[in-house]
Design a protein around this nucleic acid. Sequence first.
DNA 1: TTCGATACTGACCTGAAGGTAAGTATTGAG
DNA 2: CTCAATACTTACCTTCAGGTCAGTATCGAA
Lengths: 119, 119
Amino acid sequence: MASGDRRGPYICGIDAAMDVVSGKWKSLILWELDNYGTRRFGELKRGLPGVSEKMLVQHLREMEQDGLVHREVYREVPPKVEYSLTEHGRSLNEALGPLGEWGQRRAERLAAEAPTGSP
Amino acid sequence: MASGDRRGPYICGIDAAMDVVSGKWKSLILWELDNYGTRRFGELKRGLPGVSEKMLVQHLREMEQDGLVHREVYREVPPKVEYSLTEHGRSLNEALGPLGEWGQRRAERLAAEAPTGSP
DNA sequence: TTCGATACTGACCTGAAGGTAAGTATTGAG
DNA sequence: CTCAATACTTACCTTCAGGTCAGTATCGAA
């Protein structure tokens, strides 16, 4: 399954962190929630162009289980659910900072090397 | 294919970095090479218990293409090939540091929460 | 009575990541 | 002549992350 048994015995810290971040949209979700503080399901969906509802729900559930995300349900009609980061989620986002900067530099380097696809 | 077109248009830095690190053994390869400086193919294989030769070759090729790894071939018999990190590879490993520490802390927390599986 | 809004859930399918295992090339040792 | 050692290569197969799409529950508005 896609979100079954995890928290396996880890070989190293990277492994343990990757277990939690791997997932097509997870780092983006992390960034959205860190940036906006609190987001409703529909807002997240609109903020992540291309994400399917299924994956968004699945990722959010896993991140909740992993203690990264807090889920607040308002018993209203139509339904309202708000997501936000926990302390762990925020610290993970911080830990991802240097990696993001490295990737940024790499992207810039690639753009400089092949501006139009080398015609 | 497993290593075909990459370097796609990235949504953010994390995306660009993940494109390069995602792969079951890549962070481990990074660590091995950073730790030992230079490793032969067979040494890497023995240092990463469970890796298949196919995946090791494939990952090393991709990392070479991505400018993370340098490959030095000695024209001898039997063959000898030495792998080492480039400057980019080393900086990536550094950027992964905080993430590794976060994962380490997470692993410790998990171990403290469920020592024997909550019997 | 039907529709729209919201936050899901479930069945089904595809592609790609990764595993297994056998084959290749070269040459010195026995 | 055969074998061992090294660094691969190739073919085939399984698994699973992720996509599509349809359905559900609830209530107010029209």
